[in-house]
């Protein structure tokens, strides 16, 4: 029989609002993501200047992971795998980069933008910040795939590839964004199932 795993904490970021375990912990009115993310960074006193060099997708994933991993037992951090997915991959940054090289008369490709033209770079940012040397994967789906995410996290824990798994749906394109991140482990109140994930995702 499959061993059960549990959702220990969850966080949603959308519409200029951050909700942690069902409770609004930060909100900013009528602003774009750049301003919202900067205000959230200041509000939570993150103190990590590299945040400002990240692309939007990495900032989104980073903010969610900060809230979930800072509450974690430090001993568990090094055994935390990362399992992320989204729909638009790194398209938001890809378009910005393309714009910087589309005019032959004004051809100045930015190395700092180019390095973010892969979706899984955000996992690298989280790993560097939390010194994770663990399994990590980034998948592309049309929509949040609760069944896949539940199964994959369960397999990672069952096969002892990780003690915990930080999972995330981090979608960003243009000014549309949504992040739903959650931490899975062997203990907790909410079972890590497709049904529960769909309920929390749509909350």
């Amino acid at each position: 029989m499959e061993k059960k795993t549990y959702i220990q904490a969850f966080c949603t970021i959308e519409n200029n609002k951050i909700v942690l375990n069902g409770e609004t912990v930060f909100e900013s009115e009528n602003t774009g993501f750049a301003d919202f993310s900067k205000k959230a960074y200041q509000h939570f006193e993150i103190g990590y200047p590299k945040f400002f060099k990240m692309d939007n997708l990495s900032k989104l994933a980073f903010l969610g992971s900060e809230l979930l991993l800072k509450a974690q037992n430090p001993n568990d951090e090094n055994n935390t795998a990362l399992l992320f997915a989204n729909k638009s991959s790194s398209l938001d940054t890809d378009v910005k980069y393309q714009n910087s090289i589309s005019d032959k008369e004004n051809y100045f490709p930015s190395p700092a933008v180019f390095v973010y033209t892969l979706a899984n770079i955000c996992l690298g940012e989280i790993s560097i910040r939390h010194q994770l040397k663990s399994e990590n994967s980034f998948f592309i789906f049309d929509a949040f795939n609760a069944a896949f995410m539940a199964d994959y996290a369960n397999i990672l824990i069952e096969t002892q590839k990780a003690k915990n798994v930080l999972c995330g749906w981090t979608e960003f394109f243009g000014e549309d964004y949504k992040a739903f991140l959650y931490l899975v482990g062997n203990e907790g109140a909410i079972e890590n199932t497709k049904q529960n994930l769909e309920i929390l995702y749509n909350k």
């Binding site: 490709p109 930015s110 190395p111 700092a112």
Partner: peptide, 9 residues
């Protein structure tokens, strides 16, 4: 190092 490349640009 990425900053160095940006300075070159």
């Amino acid at each position: 190092s990425i900053d160095a490349l940006e300075l070159i640009v």
